[in-house]
Simulated scan of single mutants.
Amino acid sequence: MPHRLSKPPVYRFAPSPNGLLHLGHALSALLNARFAAETGGRLLLRLEDIDRTRCRPAFEQAALDDLAWLGLTFDEPIRRQSEHFADYERALDRLRDLGLVYPAFLTRGEIRTRVAAIEAGGAPWPRDPDGAPLYPGPERDWSEAQRADAVAEATAAGRPFAWRLDMAKARNAVKGPLTWQETGLRAHGEPEDGKTVLETVHAMPEAWGDVILSRPDAPSSYHLSVTVDDALQGVTHVVRGQDLFHATSVHRLLQALLDLPEPVYHHHRLILGADGRKLSKSHRDTGLRDLREKGLSAADVRALVV
């Protein structure tokens, strides 16, 4: 359990309403609720609906129904990311002012083609912790005049482009080691005595390369929006799945660059499907709505995951 603070801690459960919740969501929500109750803290709900093409009102309502069925209540108001694009734009503007972002014009297909050509020549190309190739584009080395001309040309032509963080410049802008405090299981399992172990983890954001911070179909990236949201909501403890452990390096870098407070992190175990992979919203056999329709109670689900 995360440590007590002089002020009541603040936890948050932050699903994306782009599908139905499953057992993995239940585990995360219930852990957040348990830690908040044990520490006298607050529990917030945030709907990460930046992706307006996949996130739908029906999925949002289904998530609210499932959480209520589990017996969970959250402090008001619910934060919907789609209502706060201006907050993310201000953060991006600050990074622009610091000279730490640049416009990137390669499409996903062009990135794959360039990387494939490089690797066909026998030279391996680096990939991020999720397995995606690091951005191979030339724009980070352009002059400001070249970038301005390219942005004007793309805008006039209606050609989309993204804004990426110049990782090398950003990392150099943060002096000294970059770390975070972790109370989760990491790779070696929960402490046998059940007590909290607070560890210092060294962040390695450079492993992600020049991450996207904004693109036309999503005005803010996951990395930027969750970092800004956690600060604006006063979140002190981030409890989420182990699949986001490595992404914390990028979030810590953005917190340092934007002078934002650092939460304590707890990355919990993942619930895996029969195929050994983490659950996704396509796993209907572990969907909370399907389990409810099969006759399972909220207590049954709690027993399955916590």
Rank of each mutant, 00 (worst) to 15 (best):
F74P: 01
Y88C: 08
G287R: 13
W142Y: 13
D229M: 04
R94P: 08
E110A: 12
D97H: 12
I212Y: 15
L47N: 08
H84L: 06
L291V: 13
S28D: 12
R90Y: 04
S16G: 03
P126Y: 14
R164N: 05
D275W: 05
R269S: 13
L27H: 08
S297V: 05
F74Q: 01
R114L: 08
A152S: 01
D230P: 15
F35M: 08
L31R: 04
A63R: 13
L64T: 06
A218L: 00
G99D: 09
Q146W: 14
D66S: 13
L45T: 05
A37G: 04
N18D: 08
A152V: 00
S249H: 08
L20R: 14
L257T: 04
A104H: 12
D149F: 06
E38G: 11
S16W: 05
A170G: 01
G287V: 06
L31Y: 07
W208H: 15
D229H: 12
S6P: 11
F74A: 03
I271M: 11
V174S: 01
T248E: 11
A132P: 03
V305G: 05
V238R: 00
P57L: 13
S6T: 07
R289K: 10
T179L: 02
V305Y: 07
G273T: 11
H22A: 05
R79C: 13
H246N: 15
A162W: 05
G176N: 02
D229P: 02
H3L: 13
L232W: 05
S297Q: 06
Q81F: 10
A145K: 09
D285W: 06
R42D: 06
E83D: 15
N172H: 15
A62S: 14
E192K: 13
H3R: 15
N32E: 07
D97E: 10
L30G: 01
D217H: 01
P261M: 00
K278D: 11
H268K: 04
E60P: 09
A132V: 13
E38L: 15
R12G: 00
D75M: 10
R52M: 03
F85A: 09
V101M: 07
Q233F: 07
Y88P: 08
P160M: 10
A33Q: 03
R215S: 11
G176R: 08
W69H: 07
G287F: 08
Q81E: 02
G122N: 05
L64E: 03
P177F: 09
P191G: 06
Y11W: 08
D65H: 12
E293L: 12
P15S: 09
E76L: 15
V239M: 03
A132N: 14
V264G: 09
L296T: 05
R127H: 14
P219C: 01
A187R: 14
M1E: 09
R90T: 10
E60D: 01
A207K: 10
V239P: 00
